[in-house]
Simulated assay, not measured.
Amino acid sequence: MTDQVTELVIYKIKPNQVENYQTNIIHHFRELVKSFDGMISYQTYHAVKEEGLFVDQVVWRNLECAEFAAEKVKEMQQDEIYAPYLSAFEEVKFFLHVKQVA
């Protein structure tokens, strides 16, 4: 069995920020996350029937890498450079690390 962990995040972007989030903000943030050790893949999905609802699916080499990245993101959110990214968020609805069982 693999040690890989999938991180699932469901979040809402403010209505006036959705276009900017999709065309600019998410790409910059994805590049940042890709720089963290252990990141294997990163996919973002947009809800079909609910405007502004997104799901991120990030696969990490193991739980330690996933938790380290989550802590780094929390720290970086204190930096002014990430203010445009953070101001786009309305709320984080769900955040969970899971492992495949079959």
Rank of each mutant, 00 (worst) to 15 (best):
Q77E: 10
T2E: 13
V33K: 00
A88K: 05
N62I: 03
V92A: 04
K49E: 09
E75G: 02
E64G: 02
E64S: 14
C65M: 06
Q43A: 12
H46I: 03
E64I: 08
L53A: 01
Q100C: 10
Y42G: 00
Q17S: 15
L86S: 11
D37Q: 03
K74H: 10
F89N: 07
L32Q: 10
N62H: 07
C65A: 15
P84G: 07
V55Y: 03
T23N: 14
A69D: 03
N20L: 13
P84C: 08
K34R: 12
E91I: 09
G38T: 04
D37N: 11
V101R: 04
V55R: 00
E67C: 03
S41Y: 09
M76L: 15
Y45D: 02
E71Y: 11
F29T: 10
I40V: 15
E80G: 02
Q100G: 14
I40T: 03
D79A: 13
D37I: 09
E90T: 06
A102C: 04
N62R: 02
E80S: 12
Y42C: 06
R61M: 03
F29P: 01
H27K: 14
Q43K: 15
Q100K: 14
V59N: 01
H28C: 04
Q17C: 15
Y42R: 00
V48G: 00
K49V: 06
L8W: 12
E67G: 02
E50I: 14
I13C: 06
T44Y: 09
V5R: 10
L32N: 05
Y42I: 05
L96M: 12
S87N: 15
D56G: 06
V92G: 00
M1W: 13
K12F: 11
T2G: 04
E71L: 12
Y85Q: 06
Q77D: 07
E7Y: 14
E91L: 09
Y82S: 05
F54E: 04
A66R: 03
K14G: 02
K72N: 11
Y82E: 06
E50F: 05
W60R: 05
I10N: 08
T23W: 03
N24C: 07
E80P: 00
